[in-house]
Each structure stands twice: as C-alpha cells, then as structure tokens.
Amino acid sequence: MMHWLTDPFTLAFMQKALIASLIVGVVCAVLGCYVVLRSMAFLGDALAHAILPGVAVAFLIGANLLAGALVAGLIVAVGISYVSRAGTVREDTAIGIFFAGALALGVVLISTMGTYAVDLTHILFGNVLGVAVADLWISGGLGAAILVAVLVLYRELLIVSFDPILGRTLGLRTQALRTGLFLMLAGTIVVSLKTVGVALVAAMLVTPPAAAYLVTKRLPAMMGVSVLVGVVSAIGGLYASYYLNVAASGAMVLVATAIFVLLFLFAPGRGVLWRVMVR
C-alpha cells in the first residue's frame, strides 16, 4: 500500500536524482546558515550566475560542466574577495560588477552554441532527472569536502561571523576565513548546478536556514533544523516532480518556501499568527 512512496525510486534515473537532491539539500542547508547570518544572499545569487561562463567554456571544449563551473566559481569568489578587501570598493558593488560581467560573458559564449535555449534552461533551472553518475561523484566529493571544512573551521567561522573584532584581536586570519567562506559558497553552487540550477540555488541556500532560524536559538540547532528542511524539500520536490509532472527544481524550492511561510506564521514564540493566537 506504500507503493506510491517507493515506486518512483525503482527507476535508475530517479535513484540518481534522489542522491543528487539529498546532497544539495544537506550542503546548501549547512553553508546557507552562514549565508543568512552574514547577509551573503546577494553574493550567493551572484556567484551562481557568475559560473555561467565556466559552464559554457566546458561545454565548448567538451569538458565536464561541473569542473568548468568550479573553476569559474573559484575565480569569481577570489576576485570579489580581493577587490572588496581593503574597502576601496564596497562588497555589494564588487559583487555586482563581477556578477554582471561574468553573466554577460556566459550569455555571449552560450549564444555561440547551436542548442542555446535548451542548454541555457538546464543550466538556469537544473535537470535533476538527467544527472549522470560522474556528476554524483563530483557533487558528493565536493559536498563532503565543504562539510568537513565547516566542521573543522566551526569555531573560527562562528567568531568572525558574530564578532569580527574579537576575531582580529585573537589573531584569526579574518580575510583568509572570508575568502574561504566565499570558496565554499562557490563549491556549494557547483554541487547544486545540475539539481536546481543557477537561478534557484539561492533559494536552497537561504530558505531552509531562514526557516530554521525562526525555531532555534543556537547555531548548531539552526544547522540541524536547516538540514531537515533542506532534505524534506529535496525529497518532496522529487515526489511532486514524479507525480505531478512538474520541474523538480521549482518544486523543491516551493516546498522549502511553504515550510518557511508556515514557520513564519506559526513558529512558537516568534510566529506572526502564533503571537496573535496566544495573546
């Protein structure tokens, strides 16, 4: 009687889609906590679009698209970090410059290809049902590396995110940590590329942590709840895609958005309607 739950995953492409979605759900949810707490949502969105030229070049020379995306993401992450480093250019200005420039380069490169529309759609909105085994290895390895880095640097990232002045007086290398966080963010976007695409990855980075923030008061708990929301969204999106025949990436983001709205209204203590009802 539970066949409707298991049926989709008897298919090989759905199994690969499930693994890819879970990796995205977990990695985005963890790193997204820093994106939300450090107000880096714009950077996340911009980095996602800025990897476009990397993907295009990889496509043109026949290399793995994720490898191309990773190279482009790392270059842009370091570029933004460097240009905005000494305060000569504001961070959001630096992001805007790199974002628009790289996106334009990506569009120009992709427009030279014959299958412009189809390829661009897959890059923008993902194609989780078409994930290859090689993509899973790249995503899994990169995702694991990012999670290990978050764990190893947990205390340093907490201190420089909460109180940068303390970080500097303790002798922490705040600039290196910031660049490191940018690089992890670029890696996370590459992990998400095939599953949700560059246009929607910002939602997976921001929405689950924002929902978790509403019901937790410490960072480890926030990360835990965020992962839960991310995983539920990923799996829920796949089911919706299978049974309703809709785009998986959009469905995942909508599930996450629905969870956020519910918690925003009803979270104990902080929900808007919860406070009205209790009063």
Binding site: L37, R155, L158, I159, S161, F162, D163, L166, L170, G171, Y213, T216, K217, R218, L219, A221, M222
Partner: peptide, 15 residues
C-alpha cells in the same frame, strides 16, 4: 545572531 550568553563567553577561551 543565534548564540547564547554561554556561547559568547566561551569564545574567550578560543585561544
């Protein structure tokens, strides 16, 4: 930021 008083004072032990 989602930190408690204890968390903040613990940061003093980092070094």
């Amino acid at each position: 930021f989602p930190v408690t008083v204890f968390d903040v004072v613990s940061m003093g032990r980092h070094g």
